[in-house]
């Protein structure tokens, strides 16, 4: 079953651009990325699009489809009606390179600023030992494929470019949470989370969790627990007092 699908694709670069209309053949079982490839092959040979695995694991083909941040390779055409016009634009939060390709350097700069994993000394036999129950919380965040859709949808930087200096974005807040929860790690990142990575900017409206293609519960399992850990350290007089008199070890 094929049909002629109507698409609007943003074409342009940093100097300007606009949505262009295309009619492209759509076949049963295809995803948006298939259509973009057909468009590239048949009508717009110079259309820039970043992609790699086509299996939802590399995180390269992020775009905004009908205004929602999604992976093009994981968005089935069957989710749209045959009469619908599908609009595809580049990720809005990042500088555009060309067409659907954006410059996501901001994310790598933030990643480099995160205090590195600092494990405690090895056991006497040279091994590290930890229990599965101790690491499984952190393992959820290791599913992240760094597609940066959460960063793209986060209104803190999407709507306020100036906040990029002070706010690391949801992907890196869960990276901080992952490290802070890790049973082997020895660095306390709670002050840095609040002061340097802008945890307080997050108002937990959960858009990051809504768009995550890996289904990571960024807010409930990462950002909110991190906020609570910061409360322990910064805003709760009882836990602060307990830690000062040695009655509340960090564990």
């Amino acid at each position: 079953m094929s049909y002629a699908g109507r698409f609007r694709v943003w074409r342009g670069d940093v100097t300007g651009g606009d949505l262009e209309d295309f009619t492209v053949e759509v076949n049963e079982g295809e995803v948006v990325l298939d259509v973009i490839h057909r468009l590239q092959a048949t009508q717009a040979g110079d259309l820039a699009v970043r992609w790699n695995c086509k299996a939802g694991k590399c995180g390269s083909c992020g775009a905004e489809i009908n205004g929602r941040p999604r992976l093009m390779c994981m968005t089935r055409m069957s989710t749209f009606g045959e009469a619908d016009t599908v609009t595809i634009t580049p990720l809005r939060t990042f500088p555009v390179v060309r067409d659907l390709v954006t410059d996501v350097s901001y994310n790598y700069e933030k990643a480099a600023q995160i205090p590195a994993f600092s494990p405690r000394p090895r056991d006497a036999d040279g091994n590290y030992r930890m229990q599965q129950v101790d690491v499984e919380r952190s393992q959820e965040f290791r599913k992240c494929i760094e597609c940066f859709l959460c960063q793209d949808t986060c209104h803190v930087i999407r709507d306020h470019e100036g906040n990029k200096a002070a706010f690391a974005g949801p992907r890196f807040l869960i990276r901080l949470a992952e490290l802070d929860m890790h049973p082997l790690d020895t660095t306390d990142r709670r002050d840095a989370a609040q002061d340097e990575f802008g945890l307080g900017y997050c108002n937990i409206t959960k858009c990051c969790s809504e768009v995550c293609p890996e289904g990571i519960h960024l807010t409930d399992n990462g950002i909110i627990p991190l906020k609570e850990r910061v409360v322990d350290r910064r805003f709760d007089p009882l836990t602060w007092l307990g830690s000062k008199i040695g009655r509340r070890p960090r564990d």
Partner: peptide
């Protein structure tokens, strides 16, 4: 996955959403 580089200076400048046109983004009104 994210690399774990030594801790840098971090982002220490308070954010100010200026509300103005964000630089170098795709022109979508």
């Amino acid at each position: 996955m994210t690399t774990t580089a030594p801790r840098g200076t971090g982002a220490v400048t308070p954010g100010r959403g200026s509300g103005g046109p964000p630089p170098r983004r795709a022109a979508i009104a």
